[in-house]
Computed example of a mutant assay.
Amino acid sequence: MASSGVKVDEETVNTYKAMKLRKVNYRYVMMGIEADGFIKVVLAKERNVNQSQEEEFNDFLQSLPQDIGRYCIIDLTIPQKNGAQKDIMFLITWCPSGAPTKSHIMYTTSKKALTDKIREGMTEIQANDLSDLVYSEFLERGCK
């Protein structure tokens, strides 16, 4: 796939690393391709101790724009078959059907630039509609 020329902002890489190493307590981070050609964090939401993980997931869904693409990292604690709890980070490429074709093209062709910088250990998901992002399916994908 051809490269779009988009680059990943260093602060975006640092945010991902801080999330991965648990230096920050974010439930999710949303990134966008900015006019300057860099993928930058546009929203970082801390975990809310007054909400269940599923409620936070639903808040995440509500924050997704319907008119433009986004890359998102969501960090979920998922019960494993052996009874343990495991933190799993998901990388979501969000290209809603209501977004212009240019947005779809930019987010599709720029994903490699992002995954080259921040992919380690994440489960990748492509979503074009909210029906592609179902909490129980995330739990299922993360359960081993």
Rank of each mutant, 00 (worst) to 15 (best):
residue 21 L to N: 15
residue 127 A to I: 00
residue 88 I to C: 10
residue 74 I to Y: 14
residue 44 A to S: 08
residue 111 K to P: 01
residue 102 K to N: 06
residue 47 R to C: 07
residue 41 V to E: 11
residue 43 L to M: 14
residue 75 D to K: 14
residue 97 S to N: 11
residue 144 K to L: 11
residue 122 M to W: 02
residue 7 K to I: 10
residue 130 L to I: 12
residue 88 I to L: 08
residue 96 P to R: 04
residue 61 L to I: 10
residue 23 K to S: 05
residue 18 A to E: 11
residue 68 I to H: 04
residue 35 A to V: 09
residue 125 I to S: 10
residue 94 W to R: 06
residue 103 S to L: 11
residue 90 F to K: 06
residue 143 C to L: 00
residue 18 A to W: 08
residue 8 V to S: 01
residue 127 A to M: 00
residue 143 C to I: 03
residue 19 M to E: 07
residue 43 L to T: 14
residue 40 K to D: 02
residue 15 T to V: 12
residue 40 K to G: 04
residue 34 E to G: 01
residue 56 E to D: 06
residue 1 M to R: 13
residue 82 N to L: 05
residue 139 L to Q: 12
residue 2 A to E: 11
residue 117 K to M: 10
residue 90 F to P: 05
residue 52 S to C: 03
residue 62 Q to G: 12
residue 136 S to I: 04
residue 61 L to T: 05
residue 59 D to W: 01
residue 41 V to R: 01
residue 65 P to K: 07
residue 77 T to G: 08
residue 143 C to H: 06
residue 120 E to H: 14
residue 80 Q to N: 07
residue 89 M to S: 12
residue 52 S to I: 06
residue 99 A to K: 03
residue 112 K to T: 13
residue 68 I to A: 09
residue 47 R to K: 09
residue 133 L to E: 03
residue 15 T to Q: 07
residue 102 K to T: 11
residue 6 V to K: 01
residue 101 T to N: 11
residue 124 E to C: 12
residue 95 C to M: 14
residue 46 E to W: 08
residue 119 R to K: 14
residue 3 S to Q: 13
residue 70 R to S: 05
residue 53 Q to L: 02
residue 5 G to F: 01
residue 88 I to F: 08
residue 127 A to C: 05
